[in-house]
Simulated scan of single mutants.
Amino acid sequence: MKDHRQSLYAEVTQRIIAELEAGRLPWVQPWDASQCACTMPSNAMSGRSYSGINVLILWGAGVEQGFTSQRWLTYRQAEQAGGHVRRGEKGTVICYADRFTLRDGADKAQSEDREARTVAFLNRFTVFNVDQCEGLPEALKSLQVSADPIVAVEAVDAIIRASGADVRIGGGEAYYSPVQDYVAVPPQAAFHEPINWYRTALHELGHWTGHTSRLGRDQSGKFGSAAYAREELVAEMASAFACASLGIVPTVRHADYVGAWLPVLRADEKAIFRAASAASKAADFLLSCGEAQA
């Protein structure tokens, strides 16, 4: 199991590194190269959105194969829906992380009145895009429609209001201050495209979610350090995931950080998995603020 797990970590990490070295960001590229609507990938049967590293894997597969949808399902789900995967189609491998408790360890922990130690495991399974299937109900095959940009912008405003974040508009820099717990964003007039104000605000709010009173990420890293690069990676993807969920096309905000991210990913094959997981949690935190106000 160990070799299997490590090979999956290495395989995905090398793929992400290759994209970054080529100047492509896996959380931005889909909206430049694919005909697919701007959205998060989801399971066609349950409607549940995929999260973490699987978002990057499925976005990448959608771009590479030119799929028109970000709806996915397993071979068995396609049959349960009344259709089937076309002969010769190759699925996309995604992963599922969880933890289990060894039976001997659980018995010993119980006798010693303590929590049992759990062991992490990573399983891979295969999904297919609805474009790779035949005979599916029209409801599963229908094209996804992007959200109205105006509505999407209103949704970000709602998130900012409901979050209770101290957002200070003004000045010439966008940043988050962990010590004073506030977000600073230049006025919208300072941006060449007004929509970029919202993308930037979501990036800084991504940092804001990491405060010790919220999701509690390590934000102690100084500029240029590995810890700083890891937090920037989380905020970048958190903004992209939130944007895609709201129908706003993600774009690169800090392209100059790519050089700092690469050493982090090369040094730790699990780093992109951790960052993507943290980004999903951050995006979900922000989106739940907007849902609470709705």
Rank of each mutant, 00 (worst) to 15 (best):
H4W: 14
L8V: 12
Q14T: 09
I17Q: 05
E21N: 11
G23L: 04
R24S: 12
V28I: 06
Q29F: 02
Q29K: 11
S34A: 14
A37C: 12
M45L: 14
M45K: 13
Y50S: 04
S51W: 00
G52C: 05
G52R: 01
A61G: 10
G62I: 13
Q65C: 07
T68Q: 13
S69D: 06
Q70K: 09
Q70S: 12
R71T: 08
R76I: 11
A78K: 08
V85S: 02
G88D: 13
T92L: 01
I94S: 04
I94G: 04
C95P: 00
C95G: 00
C95T: 15
A97N: 00
D98E: 02
T101K: 11
T101P: 00
T101G: 02
L102K: 09
K108M: 10
K108C: 02
S111I: 10
E112V: 03
E112R: 13
D113H: 13
R114Q: 11
A116Y: 07
F121Q: 02
L122M: 08
N123V: 00
N123Q: 15
R124E: 12
V130W: 06
D131S: 13
Q132I: 03
E134Y: 00
E138D: 14
L140C: 05
L140P: 07
K141C: 15
S142M: 13
V145N: 02
A147I: 01
P149Y: 04
I150F: 00
A152V: 06
V153E: 14
A155Q: 13
R161A: 15
S163G: 15
V167L: 13
R168S: 10
G171W: 11
G172F: 05
E173Y: 06
Y175L: 14
Q180C: 09
Y182V: 03
Y182F: 15
V185S: 08
P186C: 11
P187E: 15
P187F: 10
Q188I: 15
F191I: 08
H192C: 01
I195H: 07
Y198Q: 03
H203G: 06
H207C: 09
W208N: 06
G210I: 04
H211S: 15
T212L: 12
G216T: 03
K222E: 14
K222N: 11
A226N: 09
A229P: 07
S239C: 12
F241N: 02
A242L: 01
C243R: 07
A244R: 04
G259V: 08
W261L: 08
V264L: 12
L265S: 01
R266D: 03
A271D: 07
S277H: 08
S277M: 04
A282K: 08
D284F: 02
L287Q: 03
C289K: 14
G290H: 10
G290A: 11
Q293L: 13
